[in-house]
Simulated scan of single mutants.
Amino acid sequence: MLVRYKKALEKIAMGLLSFMPQEKDVKRLMETIQQYEQEDDWILYLWKKGEEYVGIVGILAEDAVATIQHITVIPSYRGEGIALKMLQELRELGQFKTLQANEETEPFLQKYIPILKEDEK
Rank of each mutant, 00 (worst) to 15 (best):
Q69S: 08
E120Y: 07
F96N: 03
V57E: 08
P21H: 05
L2W: 00
M86Y: 04
K27I: 12
Y45R: 00
R4V: 11
K48M: 09
K27N: 06
I71K: 01
G50H: 10
Q110V: 09
A64S: 12
Q100H: 02
W42I: 06
I82K: 10
E39H: 00
L44I: 12
Q34V: 02
P75G: 11
E37M: 07
N102R: 07
I113N: 09
E10V: 10
E92P: 02
E80C: 07
G79F: 06
D25G: 09
F19W: 11
E51T: 06
Y5A: 09
K27H: 12
V57H: 08
G15N: 09
S76E: 15
K97S: 15
D41S: 12
K6S: 14
K7Y: 15
V73R: 01
V26S: 12
D40E: 15
E39I: 10
A8V: 12
G15Q: 02
L60C: 15
K7W: 09
E106L: 13
V65F: 03
Y36I: 07
P114S: 07
Q110C: 07
A66Y: 11
I71F: 06
G55C: 07
E118W: 08
D119L: 03
Q110L: 11
A61N: 14
L44S: 08
K117E: 12
G58Q: 11
E23D: 11
E52G: 06
R4L: 06
A13Y: 10
L29K: 01
Q22R: 04
K27D: 14
